[in-house]
Amino acid sequence: MAVGPDSSGSRSGELVTVGRITAVYGVRGWVKVHSYTEPMDNILQFERWWLQEANGWEPLQIDGGKRHGKGLIIHIKGVDDRDLAARFCQRDIAIERSAMPALTEGEYYWHQLEGLRVISHFGGGEHDFGTVVRMMETGANDVMVVRGGGDKRERLIPYLPGEFISDIDLDAGVITVDWDPAF
């Protein structure tokens, strides 16, 4: 059963997606998890998990989790069968926003950047590039995927504070970048 603060069962304003159950592992109810946390096993530090379902979010209790190869596996409490575990696959995992550790000044969680307006003062004028629709990890550095703005283009802007990112103002909802509008 979905739970939440409103009648729709939605907790989306209170929850932050931190991973996804991808596939079953073995025959005893273990599942593979793709973690969005850095490092990946930080997801195991959160005590209370929520699992996405059709009408919102439901609590998810795990009683085991560990690194396995290049990924993570977890065991869902009370699920000791491969077929039962399969019902949990391809669903997002979230935690309550309030459970996230505080960051130092100048550090941001991806969910804080998504939805912010992106502007550039490149060449002297102000250019509205639209909003950050998502963040993407590329290996060398993170990248902001920005859509909309005056020219309705999608831009991939490297998230490199001090180089391409001039300022982030969460209160105003604006990221100022040093980026050529032609790119």
Rank of each mutant, 00 (worst) to 15 (best):
S166V: 09
V133S: 15
D151G: 05
L113H: 06
I157F: 06
G106I: 06
G115C: 05
G139A: 02
V133L: 06
V132S: 12
F122R: 09
G139E: 05
R147L: 01
G139D: 03
I119L: 12
L116Q: 13
E163T: 05
A172Q: 09
Y109Q: 10
M144F: 04
L113E: 08
V133G: 12
V177E: 11
F164N: 14
H111I: 04
G115L: 02
V132M: 06
G162N: 08
G123F: 06
I157L: 07
H111Q: 11
R134V: 00
I168F: 02
E126N: 08
D167T: 10
G173Q: 11
G130D: 03
F129D: 08
E105M: 11
S120D: 06
T131N: 14
D167L: 09
T104Q: 15
I165R: 07
D151C: 04
R134C: 03
R147W: 00
R155G: 10
F164M: 14
L170M: 10
L113F: 04
F122N: 11
N141C: 07
M135Y: 00
V118Q: 13
D151Q: 13
V145S: 08
V177Y: 09
D171C: 07
T176N: 05
I165Q: 08
M144N: 01
G106H: 09
H127L: 03
Q112N: 05
G149L: 07
V177C: 15
G173P: 09
H111R: 11
I175T: 04
E105N: 15
Y108M: 05
D142V: 00
L156F: 06
H121R: 12
E137N: 15
V118A: 14
R134S: 08
R153T: 00
G173H: 10
G125S: 15
R153Q: 11
G173N: 12
Q112R: 08
A102I: 01
G150S: 09
G106S: 13
S120P: 02
